[in-house]
Design a protein around this nucleic acid. Sequence first.
DNA 1: TCAAAAGTGTTCGTAGTACACCCATGT
DNA 2: ACATGGGTGTACTACGAACACTTTTGA
Lengths: 238, 238
Amino acid sequence: MPTPPPSSPAAAGTSDVEVETLTAVFQVQEMTADTDPVLCVLLGHDTDGPWTLPGGAVAADATLETSARRAVADSVAIANIAHLEQLAVFSDPHRLPGTRTIASTYLALVPSDVPTELPHASAWHPVDALPTLAFDHAEIVEAARHRLAAKLSYTNIAFALAPSRFPMSQLSEIYCAALGYAVDTTNLLRILSRRAVVVATGTVGKTGRSGGRPPALYAFADKQLRVTDEFATLRPPM
Amino acid sequence: MPTPPPSSPAAAGTSDVEVETLTAVFQVQEMTADTDPVLCVLLGHDTDGPWTLPGGAVAADATLETSARRAVADSVAIANIAHLEQLAVFSDPHRLPGTRTIASTYLALVPSDVPTELPHASAWHPVDALPTLAFDHAEIVEAARHRLAAKLSYTNIAFALAPSRFPMSQLSEIYCAALGYAVDTTNLLRILSRRAVVVATGTVGKTGRSGGRPPALYAFADKQLRVTDEFATLRPPM
DNA sequence: TCAAAAGTGTTCGTAGTACACCCATGT
DNA sequence: ACATGGGTGTACTACGAACACTTTTGA
Protein backbone atom coordinates (compact mmCIF):
# COMPACT_ATOMS: atom_id res chain seq x y z
CA MET A 1 0.00 0.00 0.00
CA PRO A 2 1.34 3.38 -0.99
CA THR A 3 2.11 5.78 1.78
CA PRO A 4 1.64 9.51 1.35
CA PRO A 5 4.68 11.27 -0.09
CA PRO A 6 7.39 12.30 2.36
CA SER A 7 6.76 15.64 3.94
CA SER A 8 9.34 18.35 4.26
CA PRO A 9 11.62 17.71 7.26
CA ALA A 10 10.89 20.69 9.49
CA ALA A 11 7.24 21.23 8.51
CA ALA A 12 4.64 19.02 10.11
CA GLY A 13 0.96 19.75 9.62
CA THR A 14 1.27 23.11 7.86
CA SER A 15 -2.33 23.09 6.70
CA ASP A 16 -2.96 26.77 7.32
CA VAL A 17 -3.28 27.53 3.67
CA GLU A 18 -6.12 28.65 1.43
CA VAL A 19 -6.14 27.93 -2.27
CA GLU A 20 -7.93 30.20 -4.68
CA THR A 21 -8.31 30.34 -8.42
CA LEU A 22 -7.95 33.53 -10.43
CA THR A 23 -8.76 33.70 -14.10
CA ALA A 24 -7.88 36.20 -16.78
CA VAL A 25 -10.80 35.99 -19.19
CA PHE A 26 -10.13 37.59 -22.56
CA GLN A 27 -12.42 38.64 -25.35
CA VAL A 28 -11.71 40.71 -28.44
CA GLN A 29 -14.31 43.47 -28.69
CA GLU A 30 -15.16 46.39 -30.95
CA MET A 31 -15.41 49.24 -28.51
CA THR A 32 -16.76 51.69 -31.08
CA ALA A 33 -18.03 51.11 -34.59
CA ASP A 34 -15.20 52.65 -36.56
CA THR A 35 -12.18 51.65 -34.56
CA ASP A 36 -10.15 48.45 -34.48
CA PRO A 37 -11.28 45.85 -31.97
CA VAL A 38 -9.22 45.53 -28.81
CA LEU A 39 -8.38 42.78 -26.35
CA CYS A 40 -10.42 43.05 -23.16
CA VAL A 41 -10.20 41.33 -19.82
CA LEU A 42 -13.06 40.59 -17.45
CA LEU A 43 -12.87 42.37 -14.09
CA GLY A 44 -15.15 42.67 -11.12
CA HIS A 45 -15.19 44.76 -8.00
CA ASP A 46 -16.83 44.61 -4.64
CA THR A 47 -18.06 47.74 -3.04
CA ASP A 48 -15.58 50.39 -3.97
CA GLY A 49 -12.46 48.23 -3.72
CA PRO A 50 -10.03 47.99 -6.60
CA TRP A 51 -10.89 45.76 -9.55
CA THR A 52 -10.17 42.06 -9.26
CA LEU A 53 -10.01 39.03 -11.49
CA PRO A 54 -12.87 36.57 -11.12
CA GLY A 55 -12.00 33.71 -8.81
CA GLY A 56 -12.63 32.12 -5.49
CA ALA A 57 -11.82 29.27 -3.18
CA VAL A 58 -11.46 25.71 -4.43
CA ALA A 59 -14.63 23.71 -4.39
CA ALA A 60 -14.31 20.62 -2.23
CA ASP A 61 -15.63 18.31 -4.91
CA ALA A 62 -13.92 19.66 -7.99
CA THR A 63 -10.56 20.27 -9.59
CA LEU A 64 -9.10 23.74 -9.62
CA GLU A 65 -10.00 24.04 -13.27
CA THR A 66 -13.64 23.36 -12.60
CA SER A 67 -13.55 25.74 -9.67
CA ALA A 68 -12.15 28.42 -11.94
CA ARG A 69 -14.91 27.80 -14.48
CA ARG A 70 -17.55 28.11 -11.79
CA ALA A 71 -16.10 31.32 -10.46
CA VAL A 72 -16.26 32.86 -13.91
CA ALA A 73 -19.81 31.66 -14.47
CA ASP A 74 -21.22 34.60 -12.53
CA SER A 75 -20.33 36.81 -15.46
CA VAL A 76 -19.83 34.57 -18.47
CA ALA A 77 -21.74 31.36 -19.01
CA ILE A 78 -19.45 28.35 -18.84
CA ALA A 79 -20.56 27.29 -22.31
CA ASN A 80 -19.09 30.51 -23.67
CA ILE A 81 -15.60 29.77 -22.41
CA ALA A 82 -14.08 28.27 -25.51
CA HIS A 83 -10.72 27.60 -23.93
CA LEU A 84 -9.28 27.52 -20.44
CA GLU A 85 -5.77 26.61 -19.40
CA GLN A 86 -3.49 26.83 -16.42
CA LEU A 87 -1.12 29.68 -16.01
CA ALA A 88 1.32 29.90 -13.13
CA VAL A 89 0.82 29.46 -9.41
CA PHE A 90 1.39 32.52 -7.26
CA SER A 91 2.52 31.49 -3.83
CA ASP A 92 4.27 34.39 -2.16
CA PRO A 93 3.40 34.02 1.54
CA HIS A 94 2.49 37.69 1.72
CA ARG A 95 0.71 38.19 -1.56
CA LEU A 96 -2.50 38.72 0.42
CA PRO A 97 -2.93 40.04 3.94
CA GLY A 98 -4.38 37.58 6.44
CA THR A 99 -4.41 33.84 5.90
CA ARG A 100 -1.87 32.59 3.46
CA THR A 101 -3.54 32.17 0.09
CA ILE A 102 -2.02 30.43 -2.87
CA ALA A 103 -3.43 31.41 -6.23
CA SER A 104 -3.65 29.00 -9.10
CA THR A 105 -4.20 31.16 -12.14
CA TYR A 106 -5.92 30.49 -15.44
CA LEU A 107 -6.25 31.92 -18.90
CA ALA A 108 -9.74 31.77 -20.43
CA LEU A 109 -10.91 32.86 -23.87
CA VAL A 110 -14.34 33.90 -25.06
CA PRO A 111 -15.21 34.15 -28.78
CA SER A 112 -15.78 37.64 -30.07
CA ASP A 113 -19.35 36.91 -31.15
CA VAL A 114 -20.78 36.08 -27.75
CA PRO A 115 -22.79 38.93 -26.24
CA THR A 116 -20.78 41.18 -23.98
CA GLU A 117 -23.54 42.09 -21.55
CA LEU A 118 -22.41 41.50 -17.99
CA PRO A 119 -24.51 41.19 -14.86
CA HIS A 120 -23.46 42.37 -11.42
CA ALA A 121 -20.46 44.51 -10.80
CA SER A 122 -18.36 43.16 -13.65
CA ALA A 123 -17.03 44.86 -16.72
CA TRP A 124 -14.73 44.32 -19.67
CA HIS A 125 -11.62 46.47 -19.69
CA PRO A 126 -9.23 46.99 -22.59
CA VAL A 127 -5.93 45.45 -21.55
CA ASP A 128 -4.05 48.53 -22.66
CA ALA A 129 -5.96 50.77 -20.26
CA LEU A 130 -6.41 48.80 -17.08
CA PRO A 131 -7.55 50.40 -13.86
CA THR A 132 -5.65 49.72 -10.67
CA LEU A 133 -5.96 46.05 -9.83
CA ALA A 134 -5.92 44.39 -6.43
CA PHE A 135 -2.85 42.57 -5.13
CA ASP A 136 -0.90 40.80 -7.86
CA HIS A 137 -3.78 40.65 -10.31
CA ALA A 138 -2.13 42.97 -12.80
CA GLU A 139 0.83 40.63 -12.92
CA ILE A 140 -1.51 37.75 -13.69
CA VAL A 141 -3.11 39.63 -16.56
CA GLU A 142 0.34 40.29 -17.95
CA ALA A 143 1.28 36.62 -17.73
CA ALA A 144 -1.96 35.70 -19.48
CA ARG A 145 -1.38 38.18 -22.30
CA HIS A 146 2.09 36.87 -22.80
CA ARG A 147 0.93 33.28 -22.89
CA LEU A 148 -1.81 34.10 -25.36
CA ALA A 149 0.54 35.95 -27.68
CA ALA A 150 3.04 33.11 -27.62
CA LYS A 151 0.45 30.44 -28.32
CA LEU A 152 -1.03 32.38 -31.22
CA SER A 153 2.14 31.73 -33.16
CA TYR A 154 2.46 27.99 -32.71
CA THR A 155 -1.03 26.68 -31.89
CA ASN A 156 -4.59 27.07 -33.16
CA ILE A 157 -5.59 28.89 -29.98
CA ALA A 158 -7.30 31.66 -31.95
CA PHE A 159 -10.25 29.30 -32.42
CA ALA A 160 -11.33 30.37 -28.97
CA LEU A 161 -11.32 34.06 -29.82
CA ALA A 162 -12.96 33.90 -33.23
CA PRO A 163 -16.62 33.39 -34.16
CA SER A 164 -17.52 30.06 -35.72
CA ARG A 165 -17.38 31.59 -39.23
CA PHE A 166 -15.47 34.68 -40.18
CA PRO A 167 -13.79 36.50 -43.03
CA MET A 168 -10.01 36.48 -42.85
CA SER A 169 -9.91 40.22 -42.37
CA GLN A 170 -11.79 39.79 -39.13
CA LEU A 171 -9.44 37.07 -37.96
CA SER A 172 -6.58 39.34 -38.80
CA GLU A 173 -8.05 42.01 -36.54
CA ILE A 174 -8.34 39.48 -33.74
CA TYR A 175 -4.70 38.54 -34.08
CA CYS A 176 -3.81 42.20 -34.18
CA ALA A 177 -5.75 42.93 -31.00
CA ALA A 178 -4.22 40.02 -29.14
CA LEU A 179 -0.67 40.48 -30.37
CA GLY A 180 -0.57 44.26 -30.27
CA TYR A 181 0.72 44.73 -33.80
CA ALA A 182 -0.57 44.41 -37.34
CA VAL A 183 -0.48 41.08 -39.15
CA ASP A 184 -0.72 40.69 -42.90
CA THR A 185 -4.11 39.16 -43.67
CA THR A 186 -2.79 37.59 -46.86
CA ASN A 187 0.04 35.78 -45.16
CA LEU A 188 -2.09 34.82 -42.19
CA LEU A 189 -4.40 32.89 -44.50
CA ARG A 190 -1.51 31.14 -46.15
CA ILE A 191 0.09 30.14 -42.87
CA LEU A 192 -3.10 28.94 -41.25
CA SER A 193 -4.15 27.09 -44.41
CA ARG A 194 -0.88 25.27 -44.74
CA ARG A 195 -1.14 24.16 -41.16
CA ALA A 196 -4.73 23.13 -41.73
CA VAL A 197 -5.77 25.34 -38.84
CA VAL A 198 -8.33 27.19 -40.91
CA VAL A 199 -10.52 25.91 -43.73
CA ALA A 200 -12.78 27.64 -46.24
CA THR A 201 -16.48 27.05 -45.63
CA GLY A 202 -17.56 27.78 -49.20
CA THR A 203 -19.90 30.50 -48.02
CA VAL A 204 -19.38 34.21 -48.48
CA GLY A 205 -20.17 37.05 -46.14
CA LYS A 206 -21.81 40.37 -46.71
CA THR A 207 -19.71 43.15 -48.07
CA GLY A 208 -18.89 45.99 -45.70
CA ARG A 209 -20.46 49.43 -45.32
CA SER A 210 -18.23 51.16 -47.80
CA GLY A 211 -18.31 48.68 -50.66
CA GLY A 212 -15.75 46.10 -51.51
CA ARG A 213 -15.72 42.49 -52.57
CA PRO A 214 -17.72 40.15 -50.33
CA PRO A 215 -15.36 38.01 -48.29
CA ALA A 216 -15.14 34.24 -48.22
CA LEU A 217 -15.94 32.83 -44.80
CA TYR A 218 -13.52 30.54 -43.04
CA ALA A 219 -13.73 28.37 -39.95
CA PHE A 220 -11.28 26.70 -37.60
CA ALA A 221 -10.77 23.02 -38.34
CA ASP A 222 -10.58 22.14 -34.64
CA LYS A 223 -12.27 23.64 -31.66
CA GLN A 224 -9.72 22.28 -29.23
CA LEU A 225 -6.18 23.42 -28.62
CA ARG A 226 -3.71 21.81 -30.97
CA VAL A 227 -0.02 22.51 -31.34
CA THR A 228 0.56 23.21 -35.00
CA ASP A 229 4.24 24.02 -35.10
CA GLU A 230 5.73 21.91 -32.37
CA PHE A 231 9.36 21.88 -33.37
CA ALA A 232 10.64 25.19 -34.61
CA THR A 233 13.99 23.47 -34.76
CA LEU A 234 15.64 20.20 -33.79
CA ARG A 235 12.76 18.23 -35.19
CA PRO A 236 13.04 14.49 -35.19
CA PRO A 237 14.69 12.98 -38.28
CA MET A 238 12.57 12.01 -41.30
CA MET B 1 -8.49 49.35 1.52
CA PRO B 2 -8.59 46.28 -0.64
CA THR B 3 -10.86 43.51 0.46
CA PRO B 4 -9.96 39.87 -0.06
CA PRO B 5 -11.13 38.46 -3.41
CA PRO B 6 -14.71 37.24 -3.57
CA SER B 7 -15.13 33.64 -2.56
CA SER B 8 -17.10 31.10 -4.51
CA PRO B 9 -20.82 31.44 -3.74
CA ALA B 10 -21.64 28.05 -2.22
CA ALA B 11 -18.25 27.43 -0.63
CA ALA B 12 -17.54 29.11 2.65
CA GLY B 13 -14.39 28.25 4.59
CA THR B 14 -13.27 25.24 2.51
CA SER B 15 -9.82 25.20 4.03
CA ASP B 16 -9.52 21.45 4.29
CA VAL B 17 -6.80 21.32 1.72
CA GLU B 18 -3.14 20.41 1.79
CA VAL B 19 -0.69 21.74 -0.75
CA GLU B 20 2.40 19.78 -1.69
CA THR B 21 5.19 20.26 -4.16
CA LEU B 22 6.45 17.49 -6.40
CA THR B 23 9.52 17.87 -8.54
CA ALA B 24 10.80 15.91 -11.50
CA VAL B 25 14.57 16.32 -11.25
CA PHE B 26 16.42 15.35 -14.40
CA GLN B 27 20.05 14.62 -15.07
CA VAL B 28 21.71 13.13 -18.13
CA GLN B 29 23.97 10.29 -17.05
CA GLU B 30 26.28 7.73 -18.60
CA MET B 31 25.01 4.50 -17.15
CA THR B 32 27.88 2.41 -18.52
CA ALA B 33 31.15 3.44 -20.11
CA ASP B 34 30.46 2.47 -23.71
CA THR B 35 26.81 3.33 -24.11
CA ASP B 36 25.07 6.61 -24.86
CA PRO B 37 24.05 8.68 -21.86
CA VAL B 38 20.40 8.63 -20.88
CA LEU B 39 17.98 10.99 -19.20
CA CYS B 40 17.38 10.05 -15.57
CA VAL B 41 14.87 11.21 -13.00
CA LEU B 42 15.35 11.35 -9.26
CA LEU B 43 13.09 9.06 -7.25
CA GLY B 44 12.81 8.11 -3.62
CA HIS B 45 10.90 5.54 -1.68
CA ASP B 46 9.87 4.99 1.89
CA THR B 47 9.91 1.54 3.31
CA ASP B 48 8.86 -0.72 0.52
CA GLY B 49 6.24 1.56 -1.00
CA PRO B 50 6.36 2.47 -4.66
CA TRP B 51 8.80 5.09 -5.87
CA THR B 52 7.85 8.74 -5.50
CA LEU B 53 9.03 12.10 -6.72
CA PRO B 54 10.76 14.27 -4.13
CA GLY B 55 8.39 16.76 -2.55
CA GLY B 56 6.54 17.71 0.54
CA ALA B 57 4.22 20.20 2.16
CA VAL B 58 4.55 23.93 1.60
CA ALA B 59 6.77 25.67 4.08
CA ALA B 60 4.88 28.38 5.93
CA ASP B 61 7.52 31.01 5.29
CA ALA B 62 8.39 30.32 1.68
CA THR B 63 7.01 30.21 -1.82
CA LEU B 64 6.15 26.90 -3.40
CA GLU B 65 9.26 27.16 -5.50
CA THR B 66 11.47 27.48 -2.46
CA SER B 67 9.61 24.64 -0.80
CA ALA B 68 10.24 22.48 -3.83
CA ARG B 69 13.94 23.32 -3.72
CA ARG B 70 14.14 22.40 -0.06
CA ALA B 71 12.38 19.11 -0.61
CA VAL B 72 14.89 18.15 -3.25
CA ALA B 73 17.81 19.19 -1.09
CA ASP B 74 17.77 15.88 0.77
CA SER B 75 19.18 14.26 -2.34
CA VAL B 76 20.70 16.98 -4.45
CA ALA B 77 22.26 20.11 -3.01
CA ILE B 78 20.27 23.19 -3.93
CA ALA B 79 23.35 24.72 -5.53
CA ASN B 80 23.36 21.87 -8.03
CA ILE B 81 19.90 22.65 -9.34
CA ALA B 82 20.77 24.73 -12.35
CA HIS B 83 17.18 25.36 -13.33
CA LEU B 84 13.77 24.96 -11.76
CA GLU B 85 10.41 25.94 -13.20
CA GLN B 86 6.73 25.37 -12.60
CA LEU B 87 4.88 22.65 -14.37
CA ALA B 88 1.16 22.11 -13.94
CA VAL B 89 -0.98 21.89 -10.83
CA PHE B 90 -2.65 18.56 -10.16
CA SER B 91 -5.85 19.09 -8.27
CA ASP B 92 -8.06 16.05 -8.72
CA PRO B 93 -9.90 15.73 -5.39
CA HIS B 94 -9.11 12.02 -5.27
CA ARG B 95 -5.56 11.97 -6.54
CA LEU B 96 -4.47 10.91 -3.06
CA PRO B 97 -6.43 8.99 -0.44
CA GLY B 98 -7.19 10.90 2.76
CA THR B 99 -7.04 14.67 3.02
CA ARG B 100 -7.38 16.46 -0.23
CA THR B 101 -3.94 17.35 -1.50
CA ILE B 102 -3.20 19.66 -4.37
CA ALA B 103 0.17 19.17 -6.01
CA SER B 104 2.10 22.01 -7.53
CA THR B 105 4.67 20.34 -9.75
CA TYR B 106 8.11 21.45 -10.88
CA LEU B 107 10.77 20.59 -13.40
CA ALA B 108 14.36 20.75 -12.15
CA LEU B 109 17.58 20.17 -14.05
CA VAL B 110 21.00 19.10 -12.78
CA PRO B 111 24.13 19.42 -14.96
CA SER B 112 25.63 16.14 -16.08
CA ASP B 113 28.94 16.79 -14.36
CA VAL B 114 27.69 16.96 -10.80
CA PRO B 115 28.35 13.78 -8.85
CA THR B 116 25.48 11.34 -8.93
CA GLU B 117 25.95 9.82 -5.48
CA LEU B 118 22.70 9.89 -3.56
CA PRO B 119 22.16 9.54 0.17
CA HIS B 120 19.15 7.88 1.76
CA ALA B 121 16.63 5.90 -0.15
CA SER B 122 16.90 7.82 -3.39
CA ALA B 123 18.07 6.76 -6.80
CA TRP B 124 18.32 7.92 -10.38
CA HIS B 125 16.16 6.02 -12.83
CA PRO B 126 16.35 6.16 -16.61
CA VAL B 127 13.11 7.73 -17.80
CA ASP B 128 12.66 5.01 -20.38
CA ALA B 129 12.61 2.29 -17.74
CA LEU B 130 10.71 3.67 -14.80
CA PRO B 131 9.51 1.48 -11.98
CA THR B 132 5.92 1.75 -10.83
CA LEU B 133 5.36 5.20 -9.38
CA ALA B 134 2.95 6.26 -6.66
CA PHE B 135 -0.29 8.06 -7.49
CA ASP B 136 -0.04 10.36 -10.47
CA HIS B 137 3.72 10.73 -10.29
CA ALA B 138 4.30 8.97 -13.60
CA GLU B 139 2.06 11.49 -15.28
CA ILE B 140 4.12 14.29 -13.77
CA VAL B 141 7.34 12.83 -15.11
CA GLU B 142 5.76 12.64 -18.55
CA ALA B 143 4.69 16.28 -18.38
CA ALA B 144 8.20 17.24 -17.32
CA ARG B 145 9.83 15.32 -20.17
CA HIS B 146 7.50 16.92 -22.63
CA ARG B 147 8.20 20.39 -21.33
CA LEU B 148 11.93 19.81 -21.42
CA ALA B 149 11.85 18.52 -24.99
CA ALA B 150 9.79 21.49 -26.14
CA LYS B 151 12.01 24.05 -24.48
CA LEU B 152 15.16 22.51 -25.90
CA SER B 153 14.07 23.68 -29.31
CA TYR B 154 13.30 27.31 -28.58
CA THR B 155 15.25 28.23 -25.44
CA ASN B 156 18.76 27.81 -24.05
CA ILE B 157 17.49 25.44 -21.36
CA ALA B 158 20.24 22.92 -22.11
CA PHE B 159 22.60 25.12 -20.09
CA ALA B 160 21.15 23.42 -17.04
CA LEU B 161 21.93 19.93 -18.29
CA ALA B 162 25.42 20.53 -19.63
CA PRO B 163 28.72 20.91 -17.76
CA SER B 164 30.26 24.38 -17.74
CA ARG B 165 32.58 23.45 -20.61
CA PHE B 166 31.99 20.71 -23.10
CA PRO B 167 32.78 19.50 -26.60
CA MET B 168 29.87 19.76 -28.99
CA SER B 169 29.69 16.00 -29.34
CA GLN B 170 28.86 15.77 -25.67
CA LEU B 171 26.18 18.43 -25.93
CA SER B 172 24.77 16.52 -28.84
CA GLU B 173 24.50 13.42 -26.67
CA ILE B 174 22.68 15.44 -24.02
CA TYR B 175 20.16 16.66 -26.55
CA CYS B 176 19.79 13.15 -27.84
CA ALA B 177 19.14 11.77 -24.35
CA ALA B 178 16.59 14.43 -23.54
CA LEU B 179 14.81 14.42 -26.90
CA GLY B 180 14.90 10.70 -27.55
CA TYR B 181 16.34 10.92 -31.04
CA ALA B 182 19.66 11.72 -32.67
CA VAL B 183 20.62 15.30 -33.47
CA ASP B 184 23.28 16.30 -35.95
CA THR B 185 26.21 17.68 -33.97
CA THR B 186 27.30 19.84 -36.88
CA ASN B 187 23.99 21.58 -37.26
CA LEU B 188 23.48 21.86 -33.52
CA LEU B 189 26.60 23.98 -33.31
CA ARG B 190 25.44 26.19 -36.15
CA ILE B 191 22.01 26.73 -34.69
CA LEU B 192 23.22 27.43 -31.17
CA SER B 193 25.98 29.68 -32.45
CA ARG B 194 23.67 31.74 -34.60
CA ARG B 195 21.40 32.24 -31.65
CA ALA B 196 24.37 33.11 -29.47
CA VAL B 197 23.34 30.37 -27.06
CA VAL B 198 26.73 28.71 -27.14
CA VAL B 199 30.17 30.29 -27.48
CA ALA B 200 33.63 28.83 -28.09
CA THR B 201 35.92 29.04 -25.07
CA GLY B 202 39.14 28.83 -27.05
CA THR B 203 40.27 25.80 -25.07
CA VAL B 204 40.41 22.27 -26.39
CA GLY B 205 39.61 19.01 -24.66
CA LYS B 206 41.42 15.73 -24.50
CA THR B 207 41.00 13.34 -27.37
CA GLY B 208 38.99 10.19 -26.73
CA ARG B 209 40.14 6.65 -25.97
CA SER B 210 40.27 5.55 -29.60
CA GLY B 211 42.11 8.45 -31.18
CA GLY B 212 40.61 11.36 -33.01
CA ARG B 213 41.03 15.07 -33.17
CA PRO B 214 40.84 16.87 -29.83
CA PRO B 215 37.58 18.77 -29.59
CA ALA B 216 37.11 22.49 -29.06
CA LEU B 217 35.33 23.25 -25.82
CA TYR B 218 32.21 25.38 -25.77
CA ALA B 219 30.15 27.00 -23.04
CA PHE B 220 26.67 28.45 -22.72
CA ALA B 221 26.56 32.23 -22.96
CA ASP B 222 23.89 32.49 -20.27
CA LYS B 223 23.23 30.41 -17.23
CA GLN B 224 19.63 31.52 -16.96
CA LEU B 225 16.70 30.55 -19.08
CA ARG B 226 16.33 32.70 -22.18
CA VAL B 227 13.89 32.31 -25.02
CA THR B 228 15.96 32.27 -28.17
CA ASP B 229 13.34 31.73 -30.84
CA GLU B 230 10.31 33.49 -29.48
CA PHE B 231 8.23 33.88 -32.61
CA ALA B 232 8.31 30.92 -34.92
CA THR B 233 5.84 32.88 -36.97
CA LEU B 234 3.76 36.04 -36.84
CA ARG B 235 6.68 38.00 -35.55
CA PRO B 236 6.23 41.72 -35.06
CA PRO B 237 7.02 43.86 -38.13
CA MET B 238 10.60 45.11 -38.66
C1' DT C 1 -16.12 54.37 -63.32
C1' DC C 2 -14.11 54.81 -59.06
C1' DA C 3 -13.10 53.55 -54.41
C1' DA C 4 -12.82 49.87 -51.18
C1' DA C 5 -12.07 45.50 -49.74
C1' DA C 6 -10.71 40.63 -50.96
C1' DG C 7 -7.84 37.46 -53.07
C1' DT C 8 -3.68 35.82 -56.05
C1' DG C 9 0.92 35.65 -57.36
C1' DT C 10 5.89 36.76 -57.18
C1' DT C 11 10.11 37.78 -55.11
C1' DC C 12 13.18 37.66 -51.51
C1' DG C 13 15.60 36.43 -47.37
C1' DT C 14 16.76 33.20 -44.11
C1' DA C 15 16.78 29.23 -41.14
C1' DG C 16 17.42 24.44 -40.91
C1' DT C 17 18.67 19.86 -42.90
C1' DA C 18 21.63 16.64 -45.13
C1' DC C 19 25.84 15.33 -46.47
C1' DA C 20 30.35 15.53 -48.55
C1' DC C 21 34.83 16.72 -47.59
C1' DC C 22 38.89 18.35 -44.92
C1' DC C 23 41.69 18.41 -40.34
C1' DA C 24 44.07 16.69 -36.20
C1' DT C 25 45.40 13.21 -33.24
C1' DG C 26 46.73 8.33 -31.24
C1' DT C 27 48.19 3.78 -32.38
C1' DA D 1 49.61 5.41 -42.63
C1' DC D 2 45.28 4.85 -41.17
C1' DA D 3 41.39 4.67 -38.43
C1' DT D 4 38.75 7.70 -35.52
C1' DG D 5 36.50 11.39 -34.30
C1' DG D 6 36.09 16.78 -34.90
C1' DG D 7 35.22 20.70 -37.93
C1' DT D 8 34.07 23.28 -42.29
C1' DG D 9 31.66 24.11 -46.44
C1' DT D 10 27.92 23.64 -49.74
C1' DA D 11 23.64 22.54 -51.85
C1' DC D 12 18.75 21.99 -51.09
C1' DT D 13 14.32 22.84 -49.12
C1' DA D 14 10.80 25.21 -46.90
C1' DC D 15 8.62 28.72 -44.56
C1' DG D 16 7.43 33.24 -43.82
C1' DA D 17 7.53 38.48 -45.01
C1' DA D 18 6.68 42.04 -48.16
C1' DC D 19 4.31 43.84 -51.74
C1' DA D 20 2.40 44.39 -56.39
C1' DC D 21 -1.43 43.17 -59.04
C1' DT D 22 -6.05 41.41 -60.12
C1' DT D 23 -10.98 40.63 -58.88
C1' DT D 24 -15.46 41.72 -57.10
C1' DT D 25 -18.60 44.45 -55.17
C1' DG D 26 -21.39 49.16 -53.81
C1' DA D 27 -21.97 54.02 -54.65
